[in-house]
Design a protein around this nucleic acid. Structure first.
Length: 569
DNA sequence: TTTAGGG
DNA sequence: CCCTAAA
């Protein structure tokens, strides 16, 4: 194969999804598939959930929970892994979903820019976000015409960077403490709040910690408070107007280590709603510091990110053209009709009627939670493969290779000497530099140095696979397989019934069987989730009984004739 | 790598 | 689902 050079944008260094346990034969495919899955999502919004009471006196104990959502294929939950054709062909944009990725690899002739989550912390705000906001309101609109001036600032410099040229930033203040909403809760002109989100400030980006372009896959919770990453925020009014329900003002922030945490920023969201305020019964005593009055939840969208950017460009192309290309891609995507997706604790929240509290967005569990907003292709618009042309048939292979050898393309390195400081430290980079340095930093500082070996909770969360409840179809297949193979041959079960369900490892199947047995034993009332047909549960018990009773036989009587099994049972 | 179980 | 000791 051709050697690929890979550049990775991002900070913490990319880490493959925790599928390590998958059978080797499946691993490789899974790896890139996951990769591809991720590409399905268009953009991701990193949201910060600020739970803090205004009057609270958080003596440095603020906690800032910043999480990003998991980029996953939405339909995955419904897909029937059993006997389905090889999931996803090498089409990065199947199902009308597109995404960007951000890794850069070089093909013999092209440079592939792919990155898991190029965090487009288009810090200084996107101009005319309104356009895109409108799209949010009107998914049906063909974004083709409405091209939000969103600039993916890849490799741009903080100061010379993307700025909000649109809505003015009169309130700009050098001071970090800019309480955008604290002043007029309702006086914000709709002119500026025409959208859900809009850029507000234009602030100089700190040189250090400037990580506008970074990957956050590795950390569901970012190290919060980087002053450079908060160009966006949602209009409290618009946001809540559409997201209804009561909001709870709570004061609380997740405190995050080392990184210069100038979390004094305040791109807050504050919602007012008609619904009465509910009371959160139990206040976490550990955070006695906060005083919750009205139980509002304050959200801070730390930044917007375009999770996947996949671009193919000739090696001979100029950096400028690359930038333009990225710009186009982002613009196209954002203009193509979007809708907002919400994720809480890695789970997608589809029920719009749920209250935040019900959804889990409350004081109660925010300290660990992940709140993620995502921009997804609106259902209506059949977003075509925006960049399909950039994607070679073997895109997948490329991706895979990229993963396997991450290299830095030194071709672009020279022209841009690295400013040193931010380099390789926090995985931050000076955006003004070429892509290479960015990638380099990612490589040089794969992880926060200090945090030795102990994986932080954030990382844990980030690597935890998303929950994917077994469908009845899957259960059926599992039961069938176990009836035939027994309960001690999960590898075989996997191979026989879930070959194409790459997200189900044999361990998963084993675990599922375990729960199935348990489920079958408890009363129907105690069961949760999608109900499993009693018929299947019965079979589960029978098979379980049979196989536990014939454990010895299992070794001798290989695959007992299903009929025989039935009979014996 | 798989199993088998606890977390 | 994750993590691991064992095999």
């Amino acid at each position: 194969m051709v050697s690929h050079k890979v550049l990775e944008f991002g900070d913490d260094g990319y880490k493959l999804p925790p599928q390590a346990r998958a059978p080797r034969s499946l691993r490789k495919r899974r790896i890139y598939e996951n990769k591809l899955c991720a590409i399905d999502l268009l953009a991701t919004v990193a949201g910060t959930l600020l739970l803090e009471g205004e009057s609270s006196v958080n003596a440095g104990g603020d906690k800032c929970v910043v999480v990003q959502n998991t980029v996953k294929k939405e339909v995955q939950a419904e897909e029937s892994p059993v006997k389905t054709a090889l999931p996803r062909s090498p089409s990065l944009f199947d199902n009308g979903k597109c995404g960007f990725s951000s890794v850069i690899t070089t093909n013999p002739n092209h440079l592939l820019v792919v990155s898991d989550k190029v965090e487009k912390e288009v810090v200084e705000g996107f101009s005319k976000v309104r356009n895109f906001s409108k799209n949010l309101n009107n998914p049906g609109v063909n974004g083709g015409h409405v091209k939000p001036d969103v600039v993916a600032s890849i490799g741009s410099n903080s100061s010379t960077e993307v700025r909000a040229y649109g809505s003015g930033s009169p309130n700009y203040s050098r001071d970090d403490d800019i309480h955008l909403f604290s002043r007029n809760d309702n006086d914000d002109d709709d002119e500026n709040f025409s959208g859900y989100i809009r850029p507000r400030l234009t602030r100089p980006v700190p040189r250090i910690g400037d990580r506008r372009i970074r990957k956050i896959l590795a950390s569901r919770h970012w190290k919060g408070g980087n002053t450079d990453a908060k160009p966006w925020y949602c209009s409290k009014r618009s946001y809540y107007m559409h997201h209804h329900q009561s909001s709870y003002p709570i004061k609380k922030r997740k405190y995050f280590d080392s990184v210069s945490d100038s979390n004094s920023d305040d791109y807050r969201l504050q919602g007012k709603t008609h619904k009465g305020n509910r009371t959160i019964s139990s206040m976490k005593s550990r955070n006695a510091s906060f005083v919750s009055r009205d139980h509002h939840v304050r959200l801070r969208i730390k930044s917007f990110r375009v999770p996947e950017l996949f671009i193919e460009i000739p090696e001979t192309a100029t950096v400028g053209s690359l930038k333009r290309m990225v710009m186009e891609a982002v613009t196209t995507i954002l203009g193509d009709g979007l809708r907002v997706g919400l994720m809480v604790q890695g789970k997608k929240v589809r029920d719009d009627s749920k209250t935040l509290l019900q959804t889990g967005i409350s004081e109660e569990n925010t300290h660990l939670d992940s709140l993620g907003f995502s921009l997804e292709p609106s259902l209506g618009t059949t977003s075509q493969p925006l960049l399909s042309s950039y994607l070679p048939e073997n895109a997948c292979d490329d991706l895979m290779l990229c993963r396997d050898n991450v290299l830095v393309d030194s071709n672009h390195d020279d022209s841009t000497p690295s400013p040193s400081d931010s380099f390789g430290k926090l995985g931050s980079t000076d955006d003004s530099r070429a892509l290479v340095p960015i990638a380099s930093s990612a490589l040089l500082a794969p992880r926060t140095p200090n945090r030795k070996f102990k994986r932080t909770e954030q990382q844990q969360a980030a690597h935890r696979r998303i929950r994917r409840p077994f469908s009845v179809t899957e259960v059926e297949a599992l039961v069938q397989a176990v009836e035939n193979l027994g309960t001690g041959r999960w590898r075989d079960v996997k191979v026989h019934a879930f070959v194409d369900a790459d997200h189900r490892t044999y361990v998963d199947l084993k675990d599922k069987w375990k729960t199935l047995v348990h489920t079958a034993r408890i009363s129907p009332q105690q069961r949760r989730g999608e109900p499993v047909p009693q018929e299947l549960l019965d079979r589960v018990l029978k098979a379980h009984a049979y196989w536990s009773q014939h454990l010895m036989h299992q070794l001798q009587i290989e695959p007992p004739p299903s009929s025989q099994v039935e009979a014996l049972i």
